[in-house]
Simulated scan of single mutants.
Amino acid sequence: MSRDDHPGARIAKYRKLAGLTQRGLSLKIGYSYSLLHQVEGGYKAASPDFSAACARALHVDVTALTGQPYMTELQQDRLAELIRPIRESLDLYDLGADPNVATREAPQLVDAAAVLCQQVRAAHLNKAAQALPRLIAELSTAAYRTPSTELWGALGSAYRTAHDITVKLGFYDLSTIALDRMEWAAQRSSDPVLSAVRQYMRGLVYHREGEHTIGLRLVDAGHHLLRQGDASPECLAVAGQLHLGATVIAARARDGDLVETHLTEARDIAERIGEMGHVHWLSFGPTNLAAHEISALTEMRKYGKAVEKARKIKMPASWPTSRRAHVYIDRGRSEMETGRSEAALKSIAKARELAPQQTRYHPGARATIEGLVHQQRRTSDALGYISSWLGL
């Protein structure tokens, strides 16, 4: 990465535009002057939580600092060309039935929406992105012509897939629009559980931007929606996932007591219902609880404990590939921060093996590899290869 094209250089640029010194900004973000100095100089990687803290203090989107979306790599992977059709499908939601769109039968469309969710969970982003705009057009047309709870719910699921794809590829503006469309469809399907899932995802949007208070309010709003329903296993699974989202948000806010509170609530639910990976394509259960505990420890910079937990977690082969890769990315960061360079490289390589596209565009994976490059006096062939592959 060139000396003027890395997160630290962007932080320095916006810091100067805000009229702040390095010491002034360090006081605002709660990180040391020494760390900020090293990050701006390109001698240390900017972690996702560090970038979020700077973005919040400088009043800019976090993507302005991370450089997302990573267009060079997206064009190399032929993913950039898939974004415009998705953008159009999200924009044209209110035009009613399209007379030029022939639709499949409702059961086929519902199944197709489920398949796209499966593809994203399997980290087949290219395949899902190609099929998504057409499916949204079909579902929209079918739902306008013959409205039904089933069709509107499937459309909400398709919009959720649009959110997942755009988030993973770094198009956060589109992901927010997709969540708005998801709620629009959820209201028409009269499904408070789908609306609660949307609030969970909105909370993570603000978590990424470092807005902890707002993120936790959105989680609370999700719980409020669930109270409109019953105590079914489906509602409990989404409630548990909301608690897990709050765990990570509270961890980035360095609120250990709140982290433990939400972990306890999620643990109680997981013990009652077990693994519930089929509910709105979430992955709630004991395994995801352990994964979020690793994420929380990483966010609170308890890297040694995170590595210890990561070594003990048992991820079943049936668990979604995207989630398994995410655990390896979190593990790699903690290993890098504790000086386990070889282990960190292996963890990121494993994430790449499982979910190459997801890993290539994940800020955490990039920050870990950048950190390893800074730590080592001489870059090994393996590290140089994966660094080049990431575009660093």
Rank of each mutant, 00 (worst) to 15 (best):
D5M: 04
P7M: 12
A9C: 06
R10H: 05
G19R: 14
L20R: 10
L35F: 09
V39S: 14
G42Q: 05
D49Q: 12
A52V: 15
A52Y: 05
R56C: 04
D61S: 13
P69D: 01
Y70L: 13
T72G: 14
L74Q: 06
L74T: 07
L79D: 06
L92T: 13
E105P: 07
A106C: 06
Q108N: 11
A113N: 01
A113D: 07
V120S: 04
V120T: 13
A122S: 13
K127P: 00
I136K: 00
T149P: 10
E150S: 15
W152Q: 07
L155R: 12
I165D: 01
V167S: 02
K168L: 12
D173G: 10
T176F: 06
R181C: 15
W184T: 06
P192R: 06
D220T: 08
S232R: 12
L236M: 15
A246K: 00
V248R: 11
D255F: 01
D257P: 07
V259E: 01
T261F: 15
W281T: 04
T287W: 00
N288T: 02
M300K: 09
R301P: 02
E308Y: 09
P316I: 05
S322R: 09
R331P: 00
R331A: 15
G332L: 10
M336D: 09
E337F: 06
A343P: 01
T359H: 00
A365K: 00
T368M: 06
E370V: 13
L372E: 08
L372S: 05
T379I: 15
A382S: 14
S388K: 12
L392C: 08
